[in-house]
Nucleic acid binder design. Structure first.
Length: 419
DNA sequence: TCTGGGGTCCTAGGACCC
DNA sequence: TCTGGGGTCCTAGGACCC
C-alpha cells in the first residue's frame, strides 16, 4: 500500500527505569530492574516522593506514574525504588537522537524519551517503512541496550497512537484504513489530548470509546467542550496536519522553575528567599537564551495542595534578576493570605519573550547597565566554577539553596566522563 | 499519611478605548 | 432614568502533554 506520508513515533519503553537498569547491568549488577517490580522515584523525605517511571512488573501491581511512593509500596511491599539520575537520562536521550538521525534528517524531539521522524522519502535509502521501523527498533535494542516502541502512520498523531498499542519492543502501524479497527475500540481516555478532566465530561455524554467521539454530533461537543470538542473529534478521526519540525529546538515561549520545599514556608522572609533562589535560576537560563521577558508569573501550592498564581506584565522587557525578583515578591505579597497559609511549593516563570536590547534599556533605565554587569559577572563565575560558587548572603545557613529549580547539579558531572 | 517539575495552549471576565 | 458594540490588553485559572 502506498501512503502519501510516513511518520515514525519512537518512544523509549519505561525510559528512566530502563536506562537505569541498563546502566546498572553495564556496571556489574546482576538484577535487571525491568524484570522485577521497581520504580524510579523521588525522595520522600524532601516531599518529592512520587513514582516517575514504573517497570512493567510494577504496572501489574496497579502502580501508576505520579502516584505517591507509600501508596505504591502498599500495592507491592517488595517494590524496589531507585532515585532518578538525570545526567544519565540526558546521555541516553542524545544516544537515541543520534540513532534516529541515521534514518531521517527530519527529527522532532517531543520529550526526553520520545521523538517523531519524517520517514517520507527515506524509502530509497532504508527500505519500506515497516522494514525500516523494525531495523531502527532492533538497532536501538542491540546497540544501546534499551527497547523502544515504533509507531508508524500517515501523520504524527496516528504514529503516536500506534506506538501505544502494546509494549514493549514493538512496531505498530495505524494507517487511515486501520483507524476504525485499531483506534476506535479503545477507551476515549487513550486518545492523545483527552485527559483526566475531559474523560468524565465525555462519559456523561455517553462517549466512552474513541469511536464514539469520532461520530459524536458537533453541536453536542461544542456545547459541552467549546472549541476543544472539535479538536479532539478531529483527532479521533485521525486528522492531524502538522509537520515533523526539522529544528530540534522549537522556539521558546517561556522559562520557569518551581520547587517543592522540604518544609512548609510560613514567613515572608523565607518565602522571599525561595523566590530569589528560583528567580536566580530562571534569569540565568533567560540570559543564556539571549531573551528578555515582560511577563512574570508566581505560583504557589499550599499545604492543603491547593494552588494559585498571579502574573504581572512589566512596562519593559528585562532579564535582570533583581527586577524580576522584585516583581515576584510583589506578586507573592498580593496573593498570600499570611502566616496561616503554609506554602509547600513555589514557582517563578517568565514569558512574553523578546530579544534582549540593552541599548534601549540603558537609555530608559540608566541603573540597569550596572545591574546587567553584575548579572553577567555572576553568570560567568557560575558557568566556570558551578552554580553554588557564588551566593547571596541571605542564603547562608538559611536551609534554602541559593539557586533552586531544574536538575540538581550533582547529577551532571558524569555527562562529561562517559563519552 | 501526605501529591515533582518542565512545558504549551485556551478561555473568561474586566478594564479600557473608540 | 438611560445606557450599544467592537476590539484589544491584562490577568487568573484550567486543561493538556511528558
Amino acid at each position: 500500500m502506498q501512503h502519501e506520508r510516513t511518520v515514525f513515533h519512537v518512544d523509549a519503553n519505561s525510559a528512566y527505569l530502563s536506562w537505569e537498569a541498563v546502566w546498572r547491568l553495564q556496571h556489574g549488577a546482576v538484577l535487571d530492574l525491568r524484570k522485577v517490580p521497581s520504580v524510579v522515584g523521588g525522595d520522600a523525605e524532601s516531599r518529592h516522593g512520587i513514582v516517575l517511571t514504573k517497570s512493567i512488573p510494577a504496572k501489574k501491581f496497579g502502580i501508576q506514574t505520579g502516584e505517591v511512593l507509600w501508596q505504591a509500596r502498599q500495592k507491592c511491599p517488595n517494590l524496589i525504588v531507585v532515585p532518578p539520575n538525570y545526567g544519565l537520562y540526558m546521555i541516553c536521550h542524545q544516544a537515541l537522537l543520534d540513532m534516529l538521525h541515521e534514518f531521517s534528517s527530519e527529527v522532532q524531539v517531543f520529550s526526553i524519551d520520545e521523538a517523531f521522524i519524517e520517514y517520507t522519502g527515506s524509502e530509497a535509502v532504508h527500505g519500506e517503512a515497516i522494514e525500516a521501523a523494525y531495523k531502527l527498533k532492533n538497532r536501538i535494542r542491540d546497540e544501546l541496550g534499551f527497547t523502544v516502541n515504533v509507531g508508524v502512520g500517515p501523520n504524527k498523531l496516528l504514529a503516536k497512537m500506534a506506538g501505544e498499542f502494546s509494549k514493549p519492543d514493538k512496531v505498530h502501524t495505524c494507517w487511515e484504513e486501520e483507524i476504525s479497527t485499531k483506534m476506535w475500540p479503545l477507551p476515549v481516555g487513550e486518545l492523545f489530548g483527552v485527559g483526566r478532566s475531559t474523560v468524565p465530561k465525555l462519559e456523561r455524554l455517553n462517549i466512552l470509546t474513541i469511536g464514539d467521539l469520532a461520530h459524536a454530533p458537533d453541536d453536542l461537543l461544542a456545547r459541552h467542550l467549546k472549541s476543544y470538542g472539535a479538536v479532539i473529534k478531529a483527532s479521533a478521526n485521525g486528522q492531524e496536519f502538522t509537520l515533523v519540525g526539522s529544528d530540534v529546538h522549537p522556539p521558546i515561549k517561556g522559562i520557569g522553575n518551581s520547587q517543592t520545599i522540604a518544609f512548609d514556608v510560613d514567613t515572608m522572609e523565607e518565602a522571599k528567599r525561595v523566590l530569589l533562589s528560583l528567580t536566580e535560576m530562571v534569569c540565568m537560563r533567560l540570559r543564556q537564551t539571549g531573551f528578555c521577558a515582560r511577563l512574570v508569573s508566581v505560583s504557589i501550592r499550599t499545604s492543603d495542595l491547593g494552588g494559585r498564581s498571579h502574573q504581572h506584565r512589566m512596562d519593559a522587557a528585562t532579564d535582570n534578576t533583581f527586577r524580576i525578583y522584585e516583581a515576584a515578591c510583589r506578586l507573592f505579597a498580593e496573593m498570600w493570605a499570611g502566616p496561616k497559609e503554609k506554602i509547600r511549593n513555589f514557582g517563578v516563570r517568565v514569558s512574553d519573550l523578546s530579544l534582549a536590547d540593552y541599548l534601549q534599556l540603558s537609555i530608559l533605565q540608566p541603573y540597569d547597565e550596572r545591574k546587567k554587569r553584575l548579572d553577567d559577572a555572576v553568570d560567568r563565575i557560575r558557568f566556570k566554577y558551578g552554580t553554588q560558587s557564588v551566593q547571596r548572603a541571605v542564603f547562608i545557613a538559611s536551609g534554602i539553596a541559593p539557586v533552586m529549580g531544574g536538575v540538581p547539579e550533582e547529577n551532571y558531572p558524569m555527562m562529561t566522563n562517559i563519552m
